[in-house]
Every structure is written in structure tokens, then in C-alpha cells.
Design a protein around this nucleic acid. Structure first.
Length: 317
DNA sequence: GTGTTTCAGCACCTTCACGC
DNA sequence: GCGTGAAGGTGCTGAAACAC
């Protein structure tokens, strides 16, 4: 399998002059990509400018960041022509990789705007190299900019940043430096396309955690009432587990639980409630084995949330 | 049954650090 | 300036629990 490491540059409306379109807040103006073979060696590249059809002026922030002007973009082909060439260049057997989580969402939003078929009917797998860099070399949580990662890995900076092809090239070089197979199995899923039925839902088990992406629901109440969403099944022995701490939320967005498996120990559940493009909701649930101390911390978190609510109530009265 | 208290759920906001 | 995601804070509302 090949890896298509992609970077997009986009433009947006200048508030005073051009109103931002809700269906297309960002218009892609440049696409750059490198192809990595199965040994993570760069073997090909793709680069094209795209002639803007929606936003005719460059947003001042974009102008400041990218070294591109509108005149130069007029030499590019239309989005439809470029994307068709790009997808043909990608070939058959590949997986995308990007720096950060946004590029594939914007690519698919632009494709939808121009009436193209989505890249996939379910959430698309990809490498979020920014996340993998953090898992491989840092604290697993922080999000660094691309230049920091390039400096950290002592990759030579022979071309300027903030152009699609150069950023794709550097992202590919960073990915190639990640050798740990445990890190490389940590794939991400793009959230632009959400499963619409049980068959399309995503269930994936990694070495130390399991991930589930639900189908979409009309609202949060319906989502949380679903048995699959609220279940706490051991992903190793597939038994339904009794909850030690029932689902609770400190903020209405994330829900936590702790269950206990007699064979494998304490398991933390986390549900993130996310909105779809059409204002429905879906869940991203992760289950992970934790220590007894971690379980005690989650219990404290629940108690703290309760205490905060109590204090606020007292303050009011 | 009624009034009060407690708690959970939720929307909205802020902050931080990225992306263009 | 607008987008993303994560995490956490604030204030409102309504249900549940409780006392009477």
C-alpha cells in the first residue's frame, strides 16, 4: 500500500468585501502531495494551483501566510479538473496522511460543493501525522506545528514552509521517521462522512485501546439511549462489564465511565459527542484499560464536578 | 400534594494550540 | 479572521429526592 501525504492551501472570504459561504467557508487554491511506498520512501509527487471560483480576493491572513497571489492562481485549472487528476494520480491502494485533522474534511467539503461523490461512504482512515509525532516523540497530547517537528527530527529545511508541496514533503519526511509499528497502527478517522447505519459503524481495536464511531442520531438523548453507545464491553474478552462509575459528564460534551473486568481489570470509557454537517450527532467512544489509581482519579473527577455544582448553588443562594 | 433542595444535563463561553 | 479539537468554567432549567 502507498501513502498519499497531502497538504492543501485554501482561501476564505474577506468579511468586508466578500461574505463567507456557509457551504464553502474555505476554498482550496493549491494542492500538494507526495507518494510514499510501503517502505515509507518518497517515490512521486503531485502539485497544482487551483483557479478560484468563489472567493476572488485573497484574505489578508492567507496572503500573509502563503506566498501566493490571485494573478498566479489564474494560471491554475479548475477544482474539478485538478481533483480528478489528483485522484487518478493517487492510484488504487493508498491511505492519506496529513498534518493535523482538517485537510481531508476541507477536501471533501470542497468536493461536495462541486457535486462530486465523497471519497468514501464511511469515515475515512488516515494518518494524522501531527498526532503520530506527538505519540512517538512527545506527550501524546500536544499539537506541534510542522516546523517544530522538522527541527526536532533534524530534517534539513531546504525548501520554504507554507506551500502545499513543501509542507506535504516535510510531513512525509516526519512520517518516515516514525518507525514504531505500535505508533503506526494509531490511524485516525475523518469525521466529514459519518456512518448512517449500524453496518457502516467503525469498531477498531488497537494494542492498548478500542475505538467505536457510531452512526448519526437526531439528538444527544437518542444517542445516549442507544445500547451500543452506552455499553461497556471488554474489548479483549467481549463480555459486558458492570460499571463501577456510571456515565457522567463534567461539561456536557464528554462522558466518562469506569467498568471492571474480572480478567483484565479496570476499563475507562470515554464518549465524545460530535455534531455532523447537518446538525445531527454521533459518538466517538474509546475504551482503555487503566490502573486502580486512574479509576480513583476518575471518581475524584466526578466528585469534583458534583462539588463545583454544589458550591455554585450555594453562592447563588 | 406542595414546597424546597439537590443533582444532572445542557448551551454557551473561554483558553490554548494548531490549520489556512 | 475563521476553522478544528480538547478541556474546563458558568449559569440556566428541569427532574428527582426529600421534608412537611
Amino acid at each position: 500500500m502507498n501513502y498519499i501525504i497531502l497538504d492543501l492551501e485554501w482561501n476564505q472570504g474577506n468579511e468586508q468585501k466578500e461574505k463567507q459561504l456557509k457551504e464553502l467557508p474555505f476554498e482550496i487554491i493549491e494542492i500538494g502531495a507526495v507518494k510514499l511506498n510501503s517502505r515509507m520512501e518518497i517515490c512521486d509527487s503531485f502539485h497544482e494551483l487551483i483557479r478560484p471560483q468563489v472567493y476572488k480576493e485573497m484574505h489578508y491572513m492567507t496572503k500573509k501566510l502563503l506566498h501566493l497571489d490571485m494573478e498566479e492562481l489564474q494560471s491554475g485549472r479548475s477544482f474539478l479538473q485538478v481533483i480528478k487528476s489528483f485522484l487518478a494520480w493517487c492510484g488504487e491502494d493508498y491511505m492519506f496522511g496529513t498534518w493535523g485533522p482538517q485537510d481531508l474534511t476541507e477536501l471533501q467539503r470542497n468536493m461536495k460543493f462541486y457535486g462530486m461523490e465523497p471519497l468514501d461512504k464511511k469515515p475515512m482512515k488516515f494518518y494524522d501525522v501531527q498526532k503520530l509525532f506527538s505519540i512517538a516523540f512527545e506527550d501524546k497530547k500536544s499539537r506541534r506545528n510542522l516546523e517544530y517537528a522538522v527541527d526536532f527530527l533534524a530534517i534539513s529545511k531546504d525548501i520554504p514552509f507554507h506551500r502545499a508541496l513543501s509542507d506535504a514533503y516535510y510531513t512525509g519526511r516526519v512520517l518516515a521517521k516514525i518507525k514504531d509499528p505500535q505508533v503506526l497502527q494509531m490511524i485516525s478517522f475523518d469525521g466529514f462522512i459519518v456512518p448512517h447505519n449500524k453496518k457502516e459503524e467503525v469498531h477498531i481495536v488497537f494494542d492498548d485501546y478500542a475505538k467505536y464511531i457510531s452512526r448519526d442520531f437526531a439528538d444527544k438523548q437518542e444517542l445516549l439511549a442507544d445500547k451500543e453507545v452506552s455499553s461497556t464491553k471488554c474489548y479483549l474478552c467481549h463480555r459486558n462489564l458492570k460499571k463501577k462509575i456510571r456515565w457522567f459528564t463534567p461539561n456536557g460534551k464528554h462522558y466518562y465511565s469506569v467498568s471492571y473486568c474480572e480478567k483484565h481489570g479496570f476499563m475507562k470509557g470515554k464518549i465524545r459527542v460530535r455534531k455532523t454537517e447537518d446538525d445531527r450527532v454521533y459518538a466517538v467512544k474509546t475504551m482503555k484499560f487503566i490502573t486502580e489509581e486512574d479509576a480513583a482519579d476518575i471518581f475524584k473527577k466526578k466528585e469534583r464536578a458534583r462539588e463545583l455544582r454544589r458550591l455554585r448553588k450555594h453562592k447563588e443562594s
